[in-house]
Design a protein around this nucleic acid. Structure first.
Length: 500
RNA sequence: GAGCCAUUAGCUCAGUCGGUAGAGCACCUGACUUUUAAUCAGGGUGUCCCCGGUUCGAGUCCGGGAUGGCUCACCA
């Protein structure tokens, strides 16, 4: 088990234990009780910001604050310290002739990292710093381990991920990212709630993990002696609710995919899926565009946002391009005129596009798209018209049944959404599942499973429906300008530390 | 899964040609009643990631391993 910093060398730990004993001997509980702050550091700084030293003095404004002691500057019979709470940091000033000899000695026993409560008037020092004078000191929690360094903070990414609380404690900008994450999800909820969507929760334990292309995690229910899969998508349960007549539903929930880890992949991640009866994928494009703008405004306050080396313009209408057109622009090949898989494979050889033997027309087109086009899609682009072979849950296009009424949204060359006019023909759906089963038998681990229960549901009749899936973590990465998914997950999955 | 890189004090880092480990902060002792990366005097607190090998001698060179990062593969 990972036991964090400072276990091999116990000296700093033992020094703090001695101070803990000293507190107890003085009748002070080092792990204190309820405390009721009257203000946060940020509020005090905001309110006192305009007041002069004299005005503050005249106000006789008393506050009670609680927080972690991050910095201390002792001056003998007086001390400055910095207290940090959720809103930020504020300086406090303790001196013996205000606090009394006993309490001042207790103050001097404190370590960086201890959590204390402080009560007294707000004043401004000669150097202009808003400060709380400590008239009463309450020890709330003794900290037994040393804090990372005050000036350089905590940089070791491994410790930052494994011990995120330390990261949050000493790297204040990290907190901003997670506040932004919360705001983004809040904005999505508000956007959908305002449009008559119902938020629902569906099972994460599935007998068949379907609705997406991914290997599942497998687990077991003892009482029922039943193999279960953690869900890889929300799709099929939400569509059952459309069958049931709920008309507009969404879920924001965790899905699990038993796959590799990268800067864009974590085995568990948060997915938004929504379904709207009587809509099609054009409606869903409009909805997606509006929703992302709404979230961006909520968290960035503007629609031209930085991401890495780029500035992404979310204000201009998102481009809407057919996959075959994009491939034609990039390579000169008109895939609509390609007649057979053999012809497609020949073109792949000519153009240096890697394909696997046995791939059909649609798979090859998709490889052309992924290898020749995807990396160029920096500004928001809806790519639509995916081949039917790679889209087993999407409705076929009425004019050209090789394609589907499906789109993916690309921004910064990454997929930020996947949507389609849902396939609601149960006979076609069964055929598509069977095609997937063939692919699976042929060695494609990620091909979709047949879900009989879902087929039964849509045999009762699912209205024409538009649906969307969005990887929330990637959207948060985009809107917070973070290069790695681990920087938008509080606790990314890490390999277990070996016992030493 | 493959390649490249990293791992030295609690934290952030330096460490030359292979000669027995060092700075700042933190910490400890002392001084200091408006400081603010407080200051001043003194103190180094270490499994140099682990295991082997080469060598008179390894933080340093070689091999293997662990963990992490990046890239690729995988993955819609």
């Amino acid at each position: 088990m990972w036991r964090g910093i400072d276990m091999d060398d116990q000296e700093l730990y033992e020094i703090r234990l001695r101070k803990l004993d000293e507190l107890r001997q003085r009748g002070i509980d080092p792990f204190g009780h309820r405390f009721e702050p009257t203000a946060h550091a940020g509020d005090i700084l905001a309110r006192a910001g305009d007041q002069t030293k004299e005005e503050l003095e005249a106000m006789d404004w008393r506050v009670r604050i609680a927080g972690r002691m991050m910095i201390r500057r002792g001056h003998g019979k007086a001390s400055f310290a910095v207290l940090q709470d959720v809103s930020g940091q504020i300086q406090i000033y303790a001196k013996v002739d205000v606090l009394g000899q006993d309490s001042y000695e207790v103050f001097q026993l404190l370590d960086l990292g201890d959590i204390i409560g402080v009560e007294g008037p707000v004043f401004r020092t000669n150097r202009g710093e808003i400060t709380v004078l400590v008239e009463r000191l309450t020890v709330l929690t003794k900290s037994l381990r040393p804090l990372p360094e005050k000036w350089h903070g905590l940089k070791d990414v491994e410790v930052r991920y494994r011990q995120r609380y330390l990261d949050l404690m000493v790297n204040p900008e990290i907190r901003e990212t997670f506040i932004a994450r919360s705001k983004i999800i809040q904005a999505i909820r508000r956007y959908l709630d305002d449009r008559g969507y119902l938020e629902v929760e569906t099972p994460t334990l599935h007998t068949v993990a379907s609705g997406g292309h991914a290997r599942p995690f497998v687990t077991h229910h003892n009482a029922l002696d039943m193999e279960l899969h953690l869900r890889i998508a929300l799709e099929l349960h939400l569509k059952r609710l459309i069958v049931g007549g709920l008309e507009r539903v969404y879920e924001i929930g965790r899905v699990y995919r038993n796959e590799g880890i990268s800067t864009r992949h974590n085995p568990e991640f948060t997915m938004l899926e929504l379904y709207e009866a009587y809509a099609d994928f054009h409606d869903i494009m409009d909805l997606t565009e509006g929703m992302i703008r709404h979230a961006a405004e909520a968290v960035c306050g503007k629609l031209q946002i930085p991401y890495g080396e780029w500035t992404i313009d979310l204000e201009r209408p998102f481009a809407r391009r057919h996959m075959a057109d994009l491939v034609q622009e990039a390579t000169g090949i008109d895939f609509r005129a390609v007649e057979s898989a053999e012809e497609a494979h020949a073109l792949a050889r000519q153009h240096g596009v890697a394909v696997k033997p046995g791939m059909g027309y649609g798979h090859v087109l998709n490889e052309f798209f992924e290898q020749k086009v995807e990396a160029t899609l920096i500004q928001p682009t809806f790519v639509y018209g995916h081949p039917v072979e790679i889209s087993p849950l999407a409705r076929k296009n009425a004019e050209d049944p090789r394609f589907t009424d499906r789109f993916e949204l690309f921004i910064v060359a990454r997929e930020h959404g996947n949507a389609f006019t849902e396939l609601n023909d149960p006979i076609d759906q069964r055929a598509r599942f069977e095609q997937q089963a063939l692919e699976k038998a042929g060695g494609n681990d990620e091909a979709m499973e047949v879900d009989e229960d879902f087929l039964t549901a849509i045999e009762y009749g699912m209205p024409p429906t538009g649906g969307l899936g969005v990887g929330v973590d990637r959207l948060v990465m985009l809107l917070t300008n973070q290069p790695s998914i681990r920087d938008v997950l509080l606790f990314p999955l890490m390999r277990e530390r070996a016992e030493d």
